[in-house]
């Protein structure tokens, strides 16, 4: 039960990676930075195209649907809807590739 050869789940089961259930404040900080970086790119594209009187559908749809980092609720910033989880929310870091995705909106009412 104790000592160097105790039976723990990583020792007996091979590969086991544990993921904390919530983000650390430094993870949250870096996540906000990433969100803001995407917001900056959107505004850069918008301004550059607007100077020539142009736009593109993807950009318009994004601006209509997606909240900016400042407009987002902490709930949507750091958690994501999951129907299998109790109370329907899990940490956004449970989403595969979460640092390279834009996951900003969740089903209404959840």
């Amino acid at each position: 039960m104790f000592g160097p050869f105790r039976l723990t789940s990583p020792l007996s089961g091979g590969l086991l990676w544990k993921m904390p259930w919530r983000l650390s404040r430094h993870q949250k900080y870096r996540h906000r930075e990433r969100l803001r970086r995407v917001d900056d790119i959107i505004s850069t594209l918008d301004m550059a195209l607007a100077k020539q009187g142009l736009s593109t559908k993807k950009l318009e749809v994004w601006k209509k649907d997606m909240p900016t980092e400042a407009e987002m609720l902490p709930r949507d910033k750091y958690t994501i809807f999951d129907r299998k989880v109790k109370r329907y929310r899990k940490g956004i870091h449970k989403l595969p590739k979460w640092t390279r995705l834009s996951q900003r909106i969740n089903p209404p009412g959840f």
């Binding site: 990433r34 995407v38 790119i41 959107i42 594209l45 550059a48 195209l49 100077k51 020539q52 142009l54 736009s55 593109t56 559908k57 993807k58 950009l59 994004w62 390279r100 995705l101 834009s102």
Partner: peptide, 15 residues
Amino acid sequence: VTPDVAGQIMAVKEL
């Protein structure tokens, strides 16, 4: 600066 390139950037903006 063209809408085509802007669309390409939108597809991979996180990177």
